[in-house]
């Protein structure tokens, strides 16, 4: 499996799309978490989400600010990365090329998932790093003290972010295996994350009790609850304390394992076309 992991890591690192996705992730995180809110504060403008005060942008809020995008927007990018990593083999017809070199299907799949998990950690660390720099710059500009979260809080936040990011990447992977393609899994995954989840939360859940109850078991609301429990701003899309942080972590982890396992079963059972 270590051979497959090394091969998958090389493919992921050398693929231009991986770097493009990372760049988009960091730009989104920077702009929506720091640039726009700070511009609103500095300019004194009013509008949606302008209630965020300067203290919310300072270094001591780094954990919550870094996790806020993962339940929806940054999570969508991780989902795309998962689809590309697994679905690319279908799109290019390279499953046969890889498998005829000798590794079993599950070895290759496990290598892909490990590489995705490593990529998810790198993305989360990069988001934290960019957030740290941005918050320090804002603190300096506003002559505010630079106070960092405790090491424990940072590690917990990074761990939670890694868990959420990897879960979305696994969803992308299982969609790619299930649909044996790239475009359709990306499309369906984004429709779920950006449209259906919001519609369920904003429209269906307030009207229908069982939908509200079901929200407590869905991946998005649990990812949002985990982020909220660690300080993510409540005005961020997808962030809401629907359940407690402990339950949310368990449910997100369960989805991560479930997505990976379903993908493995499908890949093992089906013919490689």
């Amino acid at each position: 499996m270590s051979r497959s992991f090394r091969a998958e890591t090389v493919k992921l690192v050398r693929r231009p799309a991986s770097w493009l996705l990372l760049a988009i992730t960091l730009v989104l995180a920077l702009i929506f978490t720091y640039v726009f809110p700070y511009a609103g504060i500095a300019g004194g403008t009013d509008g949606p989400n302008t209630g965020r005060a300067l203290p919310a942008l300072l270094p001591d809020q780094l954990v919550g600010n870094s996790l806020g995008g993962l339940p929806v927007f940054l999570g969508s990018i991780l989902l795309i990365l998962g689809v590309l990593t697994v679905g690319g083999e279908y799109g290019w017809g390279t499953w046969k090329t890889v498998l005829t070199q000798g590794p079993t299907r599950l070895e290759v799949y496990a290598g892909k998932l490990l590489a995705l998990a490593a990529a998810a950690l790198a993305v989360v660390l990069a988001v934290f790093a960019v957030g740290a720099v941005a918050s320090v710059l804002i603190a300096s500009a506003e002559a505010q003290p630079v106070t960092w979260p405790s090491a424990g809080d940072l590690l917990t936040g990074i761990g939670a972010g890694w868990l959420i990011a990897t879960m979305w990447a696994m969803l992308g992977a299982v969609l790619a295996v299930a649909l044996r393609a790239v475009a359709l899994p990306v499309g369906l995954g984004l429709v779920w994350m950006l449209a259906v989840q919001n519609l369920l939360a904003a429209i269906a859940a307030p009207l229908v009790d069982w939908v509200a109850k079901a929200q407590e078991g869905l991946p998005g609301p649990n990812a949002g609850s985990l982020a909220a429990a660690l300080g993510a701003p409540g005005d961020t899309p997808g962030v809401a304390a629907t359940v407690g942080g402990g339950q949310a972590a368990v449910v997100v982890a369960a989805y991560l394992v479930g997505f990976a396992a379903v993908g493995a079963v499908l890949l093992r059972r089906r013919d490689i076309g």
Partner: peptide, 13 residues
């Protein structure tokens, strides 16, 4: 065992 099945397929990048 080495094999080439139904045309070559590689990573374009």
């Amino acid at each position: 065992v080495g094999a080439l099945i139904e045309g070559p397929a590689f990573y374009p990048y």
